[in-house]
Design a protein around this nucleic acid. Structure first.
Lengths: 356, 356
DNA sequence: CTGAAAGCGCTTACAG
DNA sequence: CTGAAAGCGCTTACAG
């Protein structure tokens, strides 16, 4: 029983049919507003008849709350990010927030996107795998718009962030490979200006150096499959190819495995061990069975949303850096050490007595 | 040189600083509006000083155009969809539209989500891997809001849709497997109420029957990795396991390959051939090298957006069903027939002289 | 609890 | 080209 009016139904039209004021209609759809059950019923009935839905855009205009969170994301071919996106959308939805999606430019230039986001007067921003210039960070801070860097951090403490302990996890990976008696180490780096890459590289290299390993080969994979494949080829064709490779993320690690096996006929882990970071979908597939440092998507997303909500509520934003605990999930892509691997909830984890 | 006012800068404030009317400010930021260069400059200068950005929400309210497209998507663990999402967001952005993302419920219930979408007065809706009830389709039609079903279709012709020719492609796959002299055929089905599954199943089964093959095993994978793994196990442990399997999508096909190899020690394609549908990322990874019917993401997304834009422009919506051509990409997961495989742009394609 | 009214930040005829 | 003004569809003090 819908009226064929032009355009969507307005609260005014509902009011007329219900025989009440437009204010009454508005109150009916505002949780907590003072409205008598009788009036409410009349309004709901009329609304149902007309197929009325409150206009969220109009509401936003005078509440100064859009209930929209802007999300900038890149690397959709890396399973980790779609999983994050799905979790973000779902959890925001539960809180009756909505997600406006932007794809980060390849050159990492957020400025143009940033302008778009701001025009929609979003209540908060999540930057996944993207960094933000200090100027823009400060602008958000001044404008009272919370920004959370997801899987990236920023040194000046101007922006909030959610990460795992990249450096500690990378040290653990180094310790794991050492315990597995590997001799020749290589690191496949992500984009060198990415904070997580820096932390992972530092953790890995520093622990090895500390243990007396000086010759660590670092090659750039830049989070890109093709660049990674070339880098891996180069490593494997060198006179002394590595027997232990840590790639800055799973996506690159999988590429390294494919190159090792299908271009060089190497066996994994007999000839070379490969470890990644993210513990995302394909890493658990039997064809790869990648040993990987986990980034728990749900916990990271929950932390992100908790931060966002807290900052949306409060008047002044206190930037906060959250570190979510992860584990080293041991599968079959890397030789296992004699000890230190424990079973837990159906997974094998590396938990040596003492980690430095 | 930002003014520390509370809340974002308004056109009113810019007008005051620039010494012009608020209308002039508005015109400055409305492409094509009549404004003199001199006034325009004054406004731009003031806007820059104050850090002004037009409020898209307020603009939407009186243009009755939000420039937002609502997208509902599921199956984020199937690479095909994130790729689609990325392309959608990018192409919409180029047209200065924006993407409001919703995650489809597991039970396929779009109604609650639909309500949310409509409240934001989106200019259009894309439903990827989700179906829409006829009532809601008709409501959108009446409200003048274009809806495009992506990789799904709907029989009543009420909604627009973009698909590949699922039935023809499935027939081609059957022909390919027959030409490869396979004997025992199985189909791993997606959710049985999904239109693409039905078309793929029909095409596959019908061509085989037409060629005198009666015994075709159909098992449910339901687009779910666990269910698919169980179904595959059952197939392989049966007395007469299939030597040719077509899975309704790549994501299930990869699972089938892993089960075949790692649970049953089968060689692919020597012992069993596996073919998928989507030709998405991991299918090209050497560990799988999956033969698969392609769904060209860019073409499909472009068609979707073209449809959407046409319908947004026009007053009355003419539902349209677009079929995007795909190809059968031949890799190494299925035995190749003696003839019919041609090389093109670095890919091997199945293009027999005649396909029925 | 209820309604009339102001106002959110814009766009866009309208008159000049 | 420009400004004053109405209006987009709501929310929310305010007075009753």
């Amino acid at each position: 029983m819908k009226r064929k009016t032009f355009g969507p139904v307005t609260s005014q039209q509902v009011a007329q049919i219900a025989g009440v004021s437009q204010s009454a209609v508005s109150r009916t759809f505002t949780p907590g507003a003072s409205i008598s059950p009788a009036t409410r019923e009349k309004v709901l009935k009329a609304a149902r008849e007309l197929g009325y839905r409150p206009n969220a855009i109009a509401r936003s205009l005078n509440t100064a709350r859009s209930r929209i969170v802007g999300v900038v994301m890149s690397y959709f071919d890396n399973q980790f990010y779609p999983q994050v996106l799905e979790a973000l959308a779902q959890k925001l939805d539960e809180l009756n927030y909505h997600l406006l999606l932007f794809v980060g430019d390849r050159d990492g230039n957020v400025d143009r996107i940033f302008d778009q986001i701001m025009q929609y007067r979003v209540d908060g921003i999540v930057l996944a795998s993207v960094s933000l210039s200090i100027e823009l960070s400060e602008e958000c801070l001044a404008a009272g718009i919370p920004v959370v860097l997801f899987n990236r951090s920023e040194e000046n403490g101007v922006a909030s962030s959610v990460n795992t302990d990249n450096e500690a996890a990378a040290r653990q990976i180094a310790a794991f490979l050492l315990a597995g008696e590997h001799k020749r180490f290589a690191y496949i780096a992500g984009l060198s200006d990415s904070s997580v890459n820096q932390a992972r590289q530092n953790g890995f290299v520093n622990l090895l150096k500390q243990k007396g390993i000086e010759d660590i080969r670092v090659v750039q994979g830049d989070y890109d499959a093709k660049i990674t494949a070339r880098a891996a080829s180069k490593l494997f064709s060198s006179p002394q190819p590595p027997d232990a490779i840590f790639a800055a993320n799973d996506h690159m690690a999988l590429t390294v495995m494919d190159v090792a096996r299908y271009e060089f006929g190497l066996r994994i882990p007999e000839d070379v061990s490969v470890i990644g970071y993210d513990d995302t979908g394909p890493s658990g597939w039997p064809s790869y069975a990648l040993t990987s440092a986990s980034q728990p998507v749900d916990e990271m997303v929950s932390a992100t949303i908790a931060l966002l909500m807290k900052q949306i509520e409060s008047e002044s934003i206190e930037p906060e850096q959250v570190v979510v605990p992860g584990v080293l999930v041991v599968r079959h892509s890397a030789r296992r050490p004699r000890s230190g691997v424990v079973e837990k909830d159906g997974l094998s984890l590396f938990q040596p007595q003492e980690v430095e």
